[in-house]
Amino acid sequence: MNKTPLSKASNIAIGGDAPSAYLRRIEQRQGISPDALDEILRTHLIDPVHLRNDDFDAFFEARIAALAGVVSAAMGKAIVDEHGNG
C-alpha cells in the first residue's frame, strides 16, 4: 500500500535515512518550508506527522486506511480490512 513514485533526485535525497532526517534535508535543498512540504505530502495521502516522528507503524496504518478509502470510493463499496471489518 506504499507506492508513490519518486524522481531520481528525490530518491537520492532520501538516501536511506529516516524520514525525520531526509525531510529536513529536502526542505533545505529545495528552500521549502516544513508546512509547504507537509501539504505536498498530504496530496499523496501521506500523514507528515508520522513521517516526522519516524513512526513507521502509524504511517503504514494511516496510509493503508487512506488508500483503502480511495479504492472504496472508486468502487462504491466498503473495503474489508485484514480483520474482516468493512
Rank of each mutant, 00 (worst) to 15 (best):
N2R: 15
I26L: 05
D17L: 00
A66K: 09
R52P: 04
G69T: 11
I32C: 05
P19D: 02
A13E: 07
I79H: 12
A9S: 13
Y22S: 04
D57C: 02
A21T: 14
E61Y: 00
T43A: 03
A58L: 09
I64C: 01
G69D: 10
A65Q: 06
I64R: 09
G86N: 15
L23C: 09
P34Q: 14
A78M: 12
S72I: 11
E82L: 13
N2H: 14
L23N: 09
R25I: 05
R29V: 10
P48R: 15
R24N: 01
F56R: 14
S72T: 08
L67I: 13
Q28K: 07
D55V: 12
I12P: 04
A9H: 12
A58I: 07
A78Y: 11
K77R: 10
I79S: 13
L41S: 02
L23T: 15
I64G: 02
A68P: 00
F59L: 11
Q30N: 12
I14Q: 13
A18M: 12
G86T: 15
H44L: 09
R52N: 09
P34V: 15
L45T: 00
A62N: 01
G69P: 12
K3E: 10
G76H: 10
L67R: 08
P19C: 05
N2C: 14
G16E: 05
L45P: 00
G16A: 04
N85K: 13
E27T: 08
F59D: 04
Q28Y: 00
R63L: 15
P34K: 12
F56E: 14
M1P: 07
H50S: 08
N85E: 12
G84S: 02
F60D: 05
A65T: 11
I40S: 07
D35Y: 04
G15L: 00
P5M: 01
H50R: 06
V49F: 00
S7I: 02
H50V: 03
D81P: 03
P34E: 15
I12D: 15
G31D: 05
N85G: 06
A68K: 09
S20G: 10
S72H: 03
G84P: 05
A21P: 04
A36H: 10
D55E: 11
S10R: 11
E27Y: 01
V49D: 13
G86F: 11
S33D: 03
A65I: 14
G84Q: 04
N85S: 08
P19F: 03
L45N: 02
L23D: 09
G15C: 00
A13L: 04
L67Y: 06
A66F: 09
S7A: 00
R29W: 08
L6G: 05
E27W: 05
E39W: 02
I14M: 11
N53E: 13
S7N: 03
T43C: 03
K77H: 06
